[in-house]
Design a protein around this nucleic acid. Structure first.
Lengths: 206, 206
DNA sequence: ACAATTGGATACTGTCACTATCCAGATTAG
DNA sequence: CTAATCTGGATAGTGACAGTATCCAATTGT
């Protein structure tokens, strides 16, 4: 398969495919001549995954590369892959992470829930920052307010991980981990918004 | 309070405040002379809210303006405010929404759940698109797979709306609606990631 | 009186995800 | 065989977005 066919089958322009090759999101095809390379099904598959992560979930190119390399370098160890995939920062503005970001709210919550989590999970920072922001807006809100949410999150996580046991192929597990952890996120937020709308209609509706 | 004091108290640069004024995210101060205006507590409060929506949640300036005007124009009707806030598109690339976006997956799910939702909720489209993407990546996934998630989302929504009943002031309710629906989103995703990491450690951990 | 600050207009910057153009070599249609 | 097309690779340009920076004349504070 040459680049133009890859483009046709994926619906991604040749220029964009070249861009992904340059950015090392897509591995180069097998060079068959100085100006000719061959691409396979794996490329098509990966290209679709890239489009999903960037287009649907809105990951940056950098974050996407982190996810993809994490998966291809650690296919064997599902727990490791999950850790790496989960460790990808939702927004990675700063290059230098602060040596000691404040995570006190998250720490308290994690302890209370009895969760076993590495200290450097970016989610800790996100959680603490969001809570600080909400408090700075005058609401009376701390980690205790989130405990009911945390319990629902735990049930969600059980649902998620159950679906990884369906298959035994490590590569497929790794890819499914991406789908379930990252790609499902917009859908879960959409579900919450729909449920909120329903609940709002039920309580205050005309 | 003049603009420089507003800047100091909010931590937002004068240039950026001017930008928000230009973009009509922040209402103009009370003009006291040709080159002098007075800002009050409401401005400070709103400025912090703007920063939270743009900085923490990553809304665009346009989406932020939609949320803020929705709130200030419909303070009275909480259900209406919620509808407008929930209707803000997470990403608003296209100006012209397709006349008939495919929402079949979401429709089936909404019906199954017995939810009462307007047809034009953007969440329907997000949901359907995400499912289509996941399927195009080869996974066997449809709206039925989301039912357990939808039930958890419903419980989440109940938690959310319970917290709006704490106060009776419409303005405060509207602002709290923003905090709970929009600003809490990154925190909920962070909670899910933490729970996933814990569950992964529990199942496959060292 | 005079340096500093203000609101407002205009122009500029940096980032990001592409997109377009060129080029020499390779392939294919006639 | 040759002409039109396509290829991978390098380099430069685009458009959207969220700010920044600079100027200006009109106030202020001191």
């Amino acid at each position: 398969m040459r680049i133009s066919e890859l483009s046709k089958r994926s619906g991604v322009s040749v220029a964009t495919i070249k861009f992904y090759l340059r950015e090392q999101l897509l591995p180069p095809g097998e060079a068959v001549a100085a100006t000719q390379a061959e691409y396979g099904q794996a490329h098509l598959r990966r290209l679709r995954l890239i489009r999903a992560l960037i287009g649907v979930r809105g990951l940056t190119v950098n974050a996407t590369r982190q996810v993809l390399t994490a998966v291809s370098e650690n296919e064997a160890d599902l727990h490791q892959v999950l850790g790496l995939v989960l460790g990808v920062r939702p927004v990675d503005r700063d290059e230098q992470p602060d040596p000691e970001p404040d995570t006190s709210d998250a720490d308290a919550l994690v302890t209370q829930m009895g969760w076993q989590i590495t200290q450097r999970s970016p989610a800790r920072k996100v959680l603490t920052e969001t809570l600080q922001t909400i408090r700075s807006l005058g609401a009376d809100y701390d980690w205790r307010s989130l405990i009911p949410y945390a319990e629902l999150a735990q049930q969600t996580a059980v649902l998620d991980l159950d679906q990884l046991d369906d298959t035994n192929d490590p590569l497929e597990q790794a890819e499914r981990a991406i789908l379930l952890t990252i790609l499902l996120e917009p859908a879960l937020l959409a579900l919450r918004r729909l449920a909120q709308e329903h609940e709002s209609a039920r309580r205050y509706g005309s």
